[in-house]
Design a protein around this nucleic acid. Structure first.
Lengths: 366, 366
DNA sequence: AGGGCAGATGTAAGCGCTTACAGAGCGCGA
DNA sequence: TCGCGCTCTGTAAGCGCTTACATCTGCCCT
């Protein structure tokens, strides 16, 4: 009879209880484990009759292969890691969806790690690295460079929307150019006391947006004001609104680092009786769902977030399979979405996939 | 010299290039692989001096253990699978955050799978099962019972917010009771032509909410109207609003299956000049961020979604470590959040963590 | 009829790690 | 001084799978 290295202790009773192995399946089908493996991997040639016998055995035993054993043998985890700060708001979720979807198409599973709330991120990343073939990290996810260093060279790493680092691949959405366009648009409404709300030092993409904000001013020989440095958190909007209402800062337009902030500020200003955009214009970034529902509609910038995630998964996969590291970051174009909050004639509402847009671009930096 | 079963082909050149193994670390530290393992696992007793030698070697070689090998040896993946339909809206993200966070605390990594867009879900779940110790599935994620069956018994499975199935553990948020309370509240405003918007057959929790809606009517000897069966998708709100505006259906209050739907409908009705809640009240479910920003604020129900995720991770972990299957579903209490859209005196805005609430409860069904 | 060949299957050697068990070295009490 | 029991370390046997290679059938061709 077939090989029987494994006495399979539980074999005599309910073999499927603890878990059938390739041995039990082979035994049941009356073939060798090599044949079972061949049938399951679809590799090699196995006669139709034998194939059926094996499949039947698999079925009867409810055989679920042990991934670890396969991974060890083929030396591939067939899994990608994704490191994000957290998941509030649509940005990260979209990214994750794009990533998961492409990874799945490529036959890779995705292991997610959230950094927020974790005490020892370096340790967590190292841990993650033991289970996956490659890792994508969101730029702002606080990943100590040391860890990146340790990982890089061992496993492919890609940075999403972060500052490109020597020897590590990056993908991101265009920021500077579109921020400049957006700012120019606001300036075009005759506003002159614009304020950038958000912390340019907080995250690489915010920094780029601020750069665009500054560039738009310089292009018109205007002096850009100092940014109002606040973190993202929703609550911050209130604080900013208070300062404006109290007259501590004066402005006729706010260019916010993201929609959450913009929405919160606008809402507070309106509650206090201010007219948006009459008294003050407010624009955001991200085009979250709420931005379509508020009155006036929020003028903002839409990023191809899902595509970004998919691209990261794709590149990781290619790298795992031998592709060379791409030195230049891949930059995806964004879209400026004009609604009413910037001072444009308010329209009642946009059809969800708004088209009244300006496209600002660039792909793969020169 | 120490064991050298492995000639470690690349050993002579840059050993860390392809990846150091426990053998190369052992060799470099001048100890056996068992000692290296002991140091890394923190198991057994190893002298301080030896420990340091090993740690140094690990550092110098940038050693990252191969998770698969460990998993194979210990017969544990130390990973939990989570199956969700998709990730739009805050619900799934919150759930995922709660799940990931608790799992991480327990030392488990999480592998995410999204069913939306996948052709062969059964195959995907099977695939997932090969890499994880246990799986949590969102109730409405279309997971063929056959798959559940195959998995159950082999690996612990838990259903989140789904219809409990014999032999499979479940966790969920309370629906019936809070839906009844919410409906009663609306009836309390004198409304009599309430409409339930959403498809009770679409998902188990919607069905429960509808049951509460019906119960509230029966408690007052009122006849509940037939539900307006529409899927969740944001676009559907418009269609419903059109039907109301066209007079095809008449109602003075809408009890919607979730906030997305409620918000969309309310927005369309307002655009058409209808007064909410004056002409018609609208209430939702989930307490998404937007519900705090719209005017009037959306009256809704808040679920402890994050806790739900954490609980699922926790139970899975316990089950993996031998805990018995819990027969009764664990039900977490929810909170009815009263704002203006139900007809209550509109207030300008709520402090984000609104407190003007009714708490509706129950834990672990009798 | 015999040789050759291709297709089907089996054999066995790992993949890198954990861990039971055994052994070595050492201090200490009798 | 000897022996006992520690503590620390090494040996080696797997964990369940993949896969190169060997083997065994038939079957066709000459």
């Amino acid at each position: 009879m077939a090989t029987a290295r494994k006495p399979a202790a539980a074999g005599s009773l309910n073999a499927s209880h603890v878990g059938a192995t390739i041995y039990s399946v082979a035994e049941r089908a009356g073939v060798s484990i090599a044949t079972v493996s061949r049938v399951l991997q679809g590799a090699g040639t196995v006669s139709a009759k034998t194939t059926q016998k094996v499949l039947d055995a698999v079925d009867e035993l409810d055989y679920v292969p042990l991934g670890a054993a396969r991974s060890l043998a083929v030396r591939h985890h067939e899994a990608h890691g994704l490191v994000l700060p957290e998941l509030t708001g649509p940005y990260y979720s979209e990214l994750l969806m794009g990533f998961e979807s492409r990874a799945a198409e490529l036959g890779q599973s995705v292991t997610l790690m959230l950094t927020e709330g974790k005490a020892d991120i370096a340790r967590a990343v190292r841990q993650l690295a033991t289970h996956v073939d490659a890792i994508a990290v969101l730029g702002s996810a606080a990943m100590p460079p040391a860890v990146a260093k340790a990982l890089h060279g061992k496993k492919p790493v890609i940075i999403i929307a972060g500052s490109p680092q020597e020897g590590i691949e990056s993908v991101g959405a265009e920021n500077v150019h579109s921020a400049q366009k957006l700012t120019e648009h606001v300036l075009g409404h005759g506003r002159r006391r614009l304020l950038f709300v958000g912390d340019p030092d907080g995250a690489p993409d915010i920094s780029e947006r601020h750069a665009g904000f500054v560039a738009a001013h310089l292009a018109r020989d205007l002096e850009p004001a100092e940014p109002v440095r606040v973190p993202f958190r929703e609550g911050e909007g209130e604080a900013v609104a208070e300062r404006i209402l109290a007259g501590e800062v004066s402005a006729d337009a706010l260019v916010c680092a993201n929609d959450e902030l913009a929405l919160s500020i606008m809402s507070h200003l309106q509650d206090a009786g201010r007219d948006v955009p009459g008294d003050i214009a407010v624009v955001g970034w991200d085009d979250v769902m709420t931005s379509r529902y508020v009155r006036p509609g929020m003028t903002t910038v839409r990023q191809p977030v899902r595509e970004l995630g998919a691209l990261a998964a794709e590149r990781l996969h290619q790298r795992v399979h031998g592709a060379e590291l791409l030195a230049a970051p891949r930059i995806l174009p964004t879209q400026v979405i004009i609604r009413g909050s910037c001072g444009c004639a308010a329209r009642l509402r946009d059809a969800p996939p708004t088209r009244r847009t300006t496209t600002s671009t660039t792909s793969t930096t020169p």
